[in-house]
Simulated assay, not measured.
Amino acid sequence: MFAVYASAPSPEDPLASLIVGERPEPEVPDGFVAVSVRAASLNMHDLWTLRGVGIKAEQFPMTLGCDGAGVLADGTEVVLHSVIGDPAWIGDETLDPKRTLLTEKYQGTFADTVVVPARNALPKPAGLTFAEAACMGTAWLTAYRMLFVKSGLRPGQTMLVQGASGGVATALIALGRAAGLRVWVTGRTERKRALALELGAHESFESGTRLPERVDGVFETVGDATWSHSMRALKPGGVIVVSGATSGPNPGADLQRLFFLQLRVVGSTMGTRDELADLLRFCETAGIRPRIGAELPMDQAREGFAQILAGETAGKIVFTR
């Protein structure tokens, strides 16, 4: 079958191991289903896989793609949940020490067919296209959990999103606006700040700039480059919710500010199957849709990878079949 895959770990030049070609047809174990992929979205996680982060060398070649939407053999249209836990685990699957993601232990969605546990295929809302639905399982689910499960923020409060144009950031803008929060964002370029306003942000600012007032919560996916600004931006008692560190993982903690102002730092990773179901219902009820920055045929995947590697995203990059 057709697939986009990583042939080997390539830490210095991730695109060097990116292959657009053929892979064997997958087997379907008991309890799993085969999904004919219609659309799949690109995430930073796919670049980490190409670099060999979070995956052992012996697990290559690995079909890329955490997210996807497609059709079951009986014609049911589905959205995929990419967190796969131990069947014996009870409770929040993101806390399962044996959990894994598509592209770590199991082959991913950038292919004609992907095989997942039956519980990981959720019904696709009729109001979402396959391309829109393919954005939900990682970036939008991560944003949903950060905002609605982890932050504790309420309608009317002010949230700051660091980095204006990535998949999680654009999802946070749309979700926060729909939930009645005042949404501020930062961005490195005028184009990215304009995109944030177009998506519904109330104000946008240059990265690192002094804000008009302190905020109730900050949403961090950038890490080292924005951490000190995030700490300074918070009101006493405020919260930083962190789900990534794309610029580096070792920010200065500023512990004195942390304890003196009684700030909270909360980690957040992906989301549960139930949270994905809630997210899909919320999008349908609120009438919000993901911003797709580029939609490409899957055989042109290298172009999409080059865009995300260069930081040229303006919403989600989606591959279609």
Rank of each mutant, 00 (worst) to 15 (best):
K124D: 07
T186N: 08
Q300H: 15
I317M: 11
F219L: 10
E22L: 07
M1W: 04
T113S: 07
M159W: 09
A253V: 15
E12N: 15
L160K: 04
R232N: 15
G237K: 05
L195Q: 13
E203V: 10
M270Q: 14
D274V: 02
H229K: 02
R281W: 02
M62R: 12
L141M: 08
W227L: 01
G152S: 12
M159K: 06
G248A: 10
G21D: 06
S10N: 12
G65S: 06
T226S: 15
G52W: 05
A8M: 11
V149E: 09
Y106R: 04
R188P: 04
D30W: 04
V4I: 14
A306H: 03
V266S: 03
A39R: 01
F32W: 15
L122Q: 04
D92Q: 13
V4E: 11
C135K: 01
S7Q: 14
E22C: 01
A179S: 15
A118K: 11
R119M: 05
R119I: 09
L172W: 11
Q262N: 15
L147S: 07
G223P: 10
M44I: 01
A111N: 05
D92L: 08
T63I: 15
L172E: 11
V4Y: 05
P29V: 03
E220I: 02
R264K: 12
R191Y: 04
V218Q: 09
G75C: 11
F32G: 00
T285P: 00
L175M: 08
G65V: 00
S36C: 02
C135T: 07
G54D: 05
V53M: 13
A233N: 13
G167V: 01
G248T: 12
A174Y: 02
